[in-house]
Amino acid sequence: MEFTFDLNTIWFLIIGILLIGYSILDGFDLGVGALHLFVKDDTERRIMLNSIGPVWDGNEVWLVTGGGALFAAFPHVYATVFSGFYTAIMMLLFMLIFRAVAIEFRSKRPMRWWRQMWDTAFSIASIFIAFLAGIAVGNLITGIPLNANKEFIGTFWGLINPYTVLVGVTTVALFMMHGAIYGVMKTENELHNKLRGWVNNTIIFFIICYITTTMSTLIYYPHMIQHFKEYPILFVLALLNMLAIANIPREISKGKDFFAFLSSCASIAALLTLFAFGVFPNFVIASNNPEFSLNIYNAASSHKTLNIMLIIALIGIPFVLAYTISIYWIFRGKVKLNNMSY
């Protein structure tokens, strides 16, 4: 197919960038959450929490922004996905609420059972959110049954099959790796060394999942590499992705934690870009009849709306980038606990 760089494509890109931003940012705090229960000591758990303390809610804003942009730019995608995945999305919301509450409430009381309860809620919610996000991506790869009115006609259990579960587990593994590296960057001494040891395990776990997922995609969902056959240059992305992943243990062993983290960010960005090229120009593939698929044209808002939103985005994005960068700058360095901490 021919690429035409029009307004609809720009919005596909913007939403892609927002979701990549979300995966990179919330990815590490979900990953820290997934590893949380493996840390036993109360002080160490507080350090884990406070490593993400000032930034996790700002990170989740990227998801809200992505959802908001989707709602305004591609309302049919929003309507189909949010209605079709209703139960799954309600569970996601449920988990997001509990995770937020757990972070805020945990250290407010000293009782052991209280803290254990919120630690468990925090960790399980983190894993579950990552898993559900993966299931969603999996379903966008496999496609879901739609009718001519762009309505979802499948069931909740239809969304869960071996392939989507595999993508879910891969996402958890990816975020665990990402979170472990972030943890290494933000901690000192004993906890630092412990996390450094975990990085390798999470990398191995991720690579196994990644290879399995890639193989299954190539075998069962070859439409994902259609564009790659037409534009072989895109394979460079896949190569870069592998290099980024391979670079992580190298940087970790050299003690350059920040570069390891950058590599991890790059590999998440590359993975999602590969996914985006795979589905483009579709958002939601109709598994029963390709004609019912929602793409960047039949699911879009009017050109006027897209134009207005582009102006708003151009005004808003510099602000978001500026405050995101300044927050990370203010809270740079290793975590130190004080009476203002979680």
Binding site: T80, Y86, T87, M90, I97, V101, E151
Partner: peptide, 23 residues
Amino acid sequence: SKAVSADQVWFSLILFTLIYIGL
């Protein structure tokens, strides 16, 4: 929304009512 059944809406309403009471 035609894709969402009354049962699903009940499920979410009850769930969120309980959550919010608890919270």
